[in-house]
Design a protein around this nucleic acid. Structure first.
Lengths: 159, 159
DNA sequence: AATGAAATTTACCCATGGCTAACTTATTTA
DNA sequence: TAAATAAGTTAGCCATGGGTAAATTTCATT
């Protein structure tokens, strides 16, 4: 009946089928960059994620071994069907969290950063709760307004 | 004017004064375990965090170098003043997040896990928003009830 | 006080995901 | 088409935070 604590590293360890946080970041970005032309390249990807090209190469090789993307040396990066689907869901998750934080009053300048940190940690179940909150606020504009003015009145206070 | 994406690793990198996620986990747990006797030991700590004793030793040596705890080989682990203060704040942060998730309808069995993952990622500002939400719900029990019944009605649906 | 058990440390090893430097391949362009 | 430039890869390094096996220290007990 004891509570069961683990370290962060333990929680973030890759499970059999799942991806690591960084793999998710890369796949998500590949999905975004593939939007225009249907493909991207190491250079574009590494620039978009603010990493050096060799880091991107390494990760792209991993994702390729996992059959999430199609890639051959010096070539173009394209999503495999499974990768496309996964990427799409990662983006959806990202957007739900960003919306959620926005509704909560997290300032615009912080939303991207906070979303990028949080998105890798939350369970499906928690995502559902975040989504419920969004829906609730959409269905109750009166409450939403009340909430907005409530947090407006708290802006200057410290925690 | 471009959005600025980074990988998760980049975000989670230790800054000058701040702690890594794992350091936070250890310090937080040392704080909890010190509650009863004013100290804890490697064994107790490693059991509480589900790591092997050598891992705990290593981290305890690091925290000791940072002057957050007092520790000598084979001895007892005690918080230094700075560590005590930090630990206290980590616990507060933990509790705010746990309350927040609970209010949102995250099921009890998941709250600890989700809290332990999220607590290392959110900014002060975001914490303030979480806290505002808690206060808002406490000040508006009518809305809180409405929200509870709203999510009750969504329990069976998928995202 | 000596011995055996328990607690702790040390010395390694592993994987992840960054990095740089140096090399290779591809693409421009003169 | 040859040379210059750009793009990408490889090899090898670093830090983090885990792990095991073997040594060491401490403590309890006889």
């Amino acid at each position: 009946m004891e509570k069961d604590f683990y370290t962060f590293s333990e929680y973030m360890k890759k499970e059999d089928d799942s991806l690591t946080a960084s793999m998710e970041d890369y796949l998500e970005m590949i999905y975004r960059l593939s939007g225009r032309n249907g493909f991207t390249r190491i250079n574009e990807l590494s620039a978009a994620l603010n990493v050096q090209p060799p880091s991107a190469t390494k990760m792209v090789q991993k994702l390729s071994e996992l059959k999430l993307i199609k890639y051959e040396k010096y070539g173009v990066i394209m999503l495999e069907e499974e990768g496309r689907l996964l990427g799409e869901n990662l983006i959806k998750r990202h957007n739900v969290i960003a919306n959620f934080l926005s509704l909560l009053g997290v300032p615009d300048e912080e939303i991207l950063t906070e979303t990028e940190k949080i998105e890798h940690t939350v369970s499906e179940q928690t995502m559902k709760c975040f989504n419920d909150f969004i829906c609730f606020m959409n269905n109750n504009p009166d409450i939403r307004k009340k909430y907005i003015s409530y947090i407006e009145g708290h802006k200057s206070n410290l925690l």
